[in-house]
Simulated assay, not measured.
Amino acid sequence: MNEILFWGSNENPIFVKNEIEIITKPTQFKFEKENENGIKQISSGYSGTIFLFENGKAIEYLKNSSKNPEKIQIENIQKVAIGFENEAILTKEGNVFAKGFYINQENPNKFINISSLIKDPNDRIIQDVVSGIYSIYLLTSNQNVYGIGSNRSGQLGFDYKTLPKTEKPILMMKNVSKIFSGSSSYSVFLLNSNQELFCCGSNSYGQLGLGESIKGTIQKLTKIQNIPKGRIIDIQCAGEHSIMMIEQKSPKRKLYSCGRRFHSGIQGDAYEFTEIKSSLFEKIIFLIFLVGLNIL
């Protein structure tokens, strides 16, 4: 039997014991027969939650759906990623299947192989997939990043007027080692092999860490100049702030945040990545592990 703890907003009462609205205490959630090898990953967003099991199978609970829980009819799943209304499934063979309004407007509830739509056939083996609020990002085995979906905030790295959305993956950047975004984020961070960090998308609250002089929508991939010293381990992106984990010598790891005050764990608005100090560090580092599930 696999068990998890659940708390927070529960707009779909089928999800946990028919309880609706806000659950303030952790509630046990059990899987009786789904799989014998344990839960590998959980990905959650506004539209629902996906549970991936060690045997490569997954089930999803979708908001306002009468079919909960529903098995995803894709085998050998390596990773799942969910956004506001889009889902992406990475298989062990390197294929990515996705669905959503901005992915397939004619049939948004049908999974399609978006990796097969990449123009260069040598780039169709996918190493990692990350979902933003309305966009999906693919990291290929050749270390190239493609974006697909909405570009309403420049989160694909192109001018919104000339490219408001795309249903085919478009090349964003080469020589990338990691992608960072989030299910409520209109932004994306791309880290190259030299530990140089680039970003694009919404920066209305300084959540890209570019400094106070650069605000609004960033529609072109832009290098962040003032990155804290150390090796970037992870970045968690929300709608109005971002949190970065840096590996350093002493203490071994630190957290830095930028974006809207009260959301980012620091005293006021921060337009550059600012260190999170005091007891908040331990609390936030736990939440990053709990929500992100992909730090290491």
Rank of each mutant, 00 (worst) to 15 (best):
S66P: 00
Q78A: 12
P169D: 00
K254W: 05
M172Q: 10
N35Q: 11
I77V: 12
L191F: 08
P69A: 07
I114H: 07
Y186G: 09
I133M: 10
P164I: 12
D269C: 07
Y160K: 14
V96M: 02
E34T: 03
Y61N: 03
S278F: 08
L290S: 10
K71D: 13
E34M: 03
K178P: 10
E272F: 03
L280T: 11
D128Q: 11
F289L: 07
F97A: 10
Q127C: 10
I276Q: 03
Q41L: 15
I112G: 04
G216L: 05
T91K: 02
I39P: 01
K254E: 01
D234P: 01
T91A: 07
S213Q: 14
Y46M: 10
R152N: 10
I179N: 01
P108S: 06
N64S: 15
G38H: 08
Q236D: 00
I276P: 02
I179E: 05
L62I: 11
I89Q: 08
L171F: 01
S153H: 01
A270N: 11
I23E: 01
L296V: 15
K57N: 06
L156V: 04
S135T: 13
Q41Y: 14
L5N: 04
Q225F: 12
G100T: 14
S141A: 15
Y186R: 06
I295N: 10
G209W: 11
A270P: 08
E240R: 11
Q28C: 12
K254N: 03
S185M: 04
P69E: 01
N10C: 15
I77T: 09
T27E: 08
S153M: 00
Y102D: 14
E167Y: 13
F189P: 04
Q127P: 04
D120S: 12
E275Y: 05
V16G: 05
G157Y: 04
